[in-house]
Design a protein around this nucleic acid. Structure first.
Length: 494
RNA sequence: UCCCCUGUAGCUCAGUCGGUAGAGCAGCGGACUGUUAAUCCGCUUGUCGCUGGUUCGAGUCCAGCCGGGGGAGCCA
């Protein structure tokens, strides 16, 4: 059935003949479909290959033939295609190929006669699937600003920078799963729609099927959410942590990895309204275990990227941030600095640096303070822990001093807070008191409290912002350029 | 949300004291025995963000709005 639908659709496609020709080439020959990445490697020399992708640039030689640079997203480097004038469509199509056009190229991979690449593809056939009118195609053969590329989010993955970012992002995601799976964590899917308000992480997006123009009303005149889809107000999640704790207190070590939503009116290079977060949660673990885990985790990601994304990293070093590779190598080489909040305050008070905001025990650290610690004083990631309880949410475990809680923030040079986490309060009475202190109703969290009532355990976890990790690893300064389709106030196109 | 900067050709920008607009790149045409951001010659390209105001006259001055950037807050 699916096949017949596909066939029916062919005659309506604008380039039906080309599509069918490609299909027949798959069936027929000994020809291998190669990615540009594979075709660029010396091992491919001598193979007959089919390579498919998009033209980056065409150079016509004095000798009456053309060089085509083809990219398919598999690597930063392009495959150089030699298009001889003897090709049937050389004058009619090949000579007019411009950036953005899509092609299938068949031919032999051979040693490149020029500098700059090991291999090239000597074309015996070039099929042009679609041209991109050079008078109109926005991506020119020159550098564009990242701001301009944001306006072309549908075309920007065809650029070197966004392509490299997305390959690194992909590698990071793979490392995240590899790391936790190898450490025997269970991947848990916590809900995206949640009814627990005030999870403590900021403003939430409401999820509702009520008529926004004319919602049903209660006798008192308020909106009657009893008639809404879930029979109560519902929101997009701001964190999977509370649900993660449910699974950690049954299955030991778990992690969540999924989209997270914050309805804050944040307009910065470090915030998104929709972003991806990784949240491990570990039973029978304390804050030290948590810090060890965070450090091992970050080092693993960085090591994998250094190993597997060399070409892309070199691009970032050259074009985006000259220090990026050195910074990553330092991460892998050494332990992170760990510093209690109280000592950090003392250090900042004595450091002689002039801050716009004064430093004092009991106040939250400002961006300038965090930056001083991570960038100037230590020059490496810093883990700050044991924050004043007044600064942190109800679920963090209260220390014996009664004044601080077992919170930790990992501050990365360049991006600031990359991880926030804590040991959780496992004592029912203390937890209940803390909720009341912060004006929350324990009744609303009955299921969260029952985890403490029945077989409570010390446990800890943290959240890593995926995009901030991508920023840190690539050196990209704006978070809107490390996610395919950024969502922020006033912006949800594409 | 607050503070500062900014908006002129497809892109990056210049535009003096208010007198109807300019460069580089890209594109197009041509030249050129393997090029690599190819090179050389020639040509084309405008709602000066929007609305209103001041003025004989506004890209330029004023007000409001919209977009973009940097910083701050909220955080990951």
């Amino acid at each position: 059935m699916a096949i017949s639908v596909l066939l029916l659709s062919y005659p309506r496609s604008s380039d039906a003949s080309a599509t069918i020709r490609v299909l027949s080439s798959f069936q027929s020959s000994s020809m291998d479909k190669l990615s540009v990445k594979s075709a660029r490697q010396a091992g491919a020399i001598g193979r007959n290959a089919l390579v498919q992708g998009w033209i980056r640039t065409r150079r016509d030689s004095k000798g009456g033939f053309s060089f085509l640079e083809v990219n398919d997203g598999s690597s930063l480097g392009n495959l150089q295609v030699i298009a001889e004038a003897s090709l049937a469509n050389y004058e009619s199509e090949v000579k007019h190929l411009s950036a953005g056009s899509s092609v299938s190229v068949r031919g032999e991979i051979r040693v490149s006669g020029g500098q700059g690449q090991a291999t090239e593809l000597a074309a015996t056939e070039i099929i042009v699937h679609g041209v991109a009118d050079p008078e109109k195609y926005p991506l020119q053969k020159k550098r564009h600003t990242l701001e301009k590329l944001r306006e072309w989010a549908h075309l920007r993955p065809r650029t070197n920078t966004i392509g490299a970012v997305m390959r690194v992002r992909n590698r990071i995601c793979r490392s995240i799963h590899d790391f936790f799976q190898e450490e025997e964590f269970l991947y848990v899917h916590t809900p995206i729609i949640t009814a627990s308000d005030c999870e403590g992480a900021g403003a939430m997006f409401r999820v509702s099927t009520l008529d926004a123009e004319k919602p049903p009303r209660t006798p008192q005149g308020g909106v009657d959410y009893a008639q809404d889809f879930f029979g109560r107000p519902a929101y997009l999640t701001v964190s999977g942590q509370l649900e993660g704790e449910i699974y950690a207190t049954a299955m030991g070590k778990i992690y969540t990895f999924g989209p997270t939503f914050r309805a804050e009116n944040s307009n910065t290079s470090r915030h998104l309204a929709e972003f991806w977060m990784v949240e491990p949660e570990v039973a029978f673990a304390d804050l030290n275990d948590n810090m060890d885990l965070a450090e091992r985790f970050l080092q693993r990601i960085v090591r994998d990227v250094l190993t597997d994304c060399g070409e892309d990293l070199e691009f970032f070093r050259e074009r985006i941030d000259a220090e990026v590779v050195a910074r990553l190598e330092r991460i892998v080489a050494g332990a992170f600095q760990r510093l209690p909040y109280t000592e950090a305050i003392a250090l900042l008070e004595k450091c002689g640096e002039k801050f716009e905001y004064p430093v004092k025990w009991g106040v939250d650290l400002q961006a300038e303070h965090e930056r001083y610690l991570a960038e100037k004083h230590f020059g490496s990631p810093v883990i700050l822990y044991d924050y004043p309880s007044s600064l942190k949410p109800f679920y963090m475990r209260v220390n014996d001093d009664g004044e601080t809680v077992r919170a930790m923030d990992v501050l990365a040079p360049g991006v600031g807070e990359i991880i926030g986490g804590s040991q959780r309060e496992e004592r029912l009475d203390v937890l209940t008191a803390r909720m009341q202190e912060q004006g929350l109703s324990p009744a609303d969290y009955w299921w969260y409290l029952e985890l403490r009532e029945y077989g409570t355990v010390p446990h800890a976890g943290f959240g890593l912002g995926l995009e901030r990790m991508v920023q840190f690893v690539t050196g990209m300064t704006n978070i809107r350029d490390v996610i395919p389709f950024p969502r922020y106030p006033g912006s949800a196109e594409f």
